[in-house]
């Protein structure tokens, strides 16, 4: 009896995701509106994403190439792509906690597949990433760095990143709907992760202690996109770590979503 209940719960969760995929025009529109909404009535509009990211990249790149005593040509592209990918990861883990609580006005008034809010959320983050990405291209062009065809590895790399982003959003969104402290905890952790991950510094600076970077899953997630764009395929270790992370993420999200999906309306 318990067994059948478990299976039907899991099936309901799969149906939820499936139903949401079918409603793609809805979450496309909502995700797009989220972007428009934030910059409505501003002159630059969504280009504000691009502008602020460009300024951050240049400022950090210039200062840190001095601090770390590295040539700008070496550090700047690394910092630039690192920051752009980190901005994507960071915005997901920071804001995923509000995924369901923020959609309260929908959830309490209409029955829709809950995955819609996840898709909408991830989509808006991908759109912002697309606004930032040209900065990476400009930086590479400025330093005359041509990664070659290996850069195409960045495409599946980014897709894997998006999948992980979606999965962790489900888990974080659910847990945060129940325990409102979670987003606060993540906000304080995110600062630390940013500083201990080789984003604005090179992992090579760790010397013998390179395990400090290698043990950091965020490093590998960033490398998934950064390494190909800088001209080398992601390392085997990066692939193993990120694939393992994806599996864990999937199991976690599937378990939580199947178990607690129908509680979301009560929690928010």
């Amino acid at each position: 009896m318990i067994q059948t209940k478990k299976i039907s719960r899991f099936k309901l969760a799969v149906d939820d995701v499936h139903g949401a995929i079918e409603l793609w025009p809805l979450w496309f529109r909502l995700g797009w509106n989220d972007i428009l909404h934030r910059y409505r009535r501003s002159t630059l509009g969504p280009l504000w994403f691009t502008a602020s990211m460009a300024i951050t990249t240049v400022a950090l790149g210039l200062v840190y190439s001095q601090v770390l005593n590295l040539p700008a040509r070496e550090l700047m592209p690394h910092v630039c792509i690192g920051l752009i990918v980190w901005a994507f990861i960071n915005s997901i883990i920071l804001e995923a906690g509000d995924l369901f609580t923020g959609a309260e006005s929908y959830i309490r008034h209409i029955k829709l597949p809950y995955s819609i809010y996840v898709f909408r959320f991830v989509l808006s983050k991908v759109i912002i990433f697309a606004h930032d990405f040209p900065i990476a291209v400009v930086t590479l062009a400025f330093f005359r760095i041509w990664p070659g065809p290996v850069a195409l590895y960045a495409v599946p790399g980014f897709l894997l990143l998006v999948v992980n982003g979606g999965l962790i959003s489900i888990s974080l969104g659910l847990v945060s709907a129940r325990f409102r402290d979670i987003p606060r905890i993540i906000a304080s952790l995110s600062q630390i992760i940013f500083l201990i991950t080789p984003i604005i510094w090179m992992p090579s600076l760790l010397g013998e202690r390179s395990y400090l970077a290698e043990a950091n899953p965020f490093f590998h997630l960033i490398e998934l996109v950064r390494a190909p764009l800088l001209g080398s395929a992601p390392s085997v270790r990066t692939l193993v770590v990120t694939l393992a992370l994806t599996v864990i993420n999937l199991l976690l999200a599937a378990t939580l979503f199947a178990r607690y999906r129908n509680r979301i309306a009560y929690w928010i």
Binding site: N33, L36, H37, R40, R41, S105, Y106, R108, H109, I110, K111
Partner: peptide, 16 residues
């Protein structure tokens, strides 16, 4: 097909 009319503001985006 269920049409809930529980809240006028459902999905309303004031800027649109």
């Amino acid at each position: 097909r269920i049409s809930p009319l529980l809240d006028i503001n459902l999905g309303i985006d004031a800027e649109l």
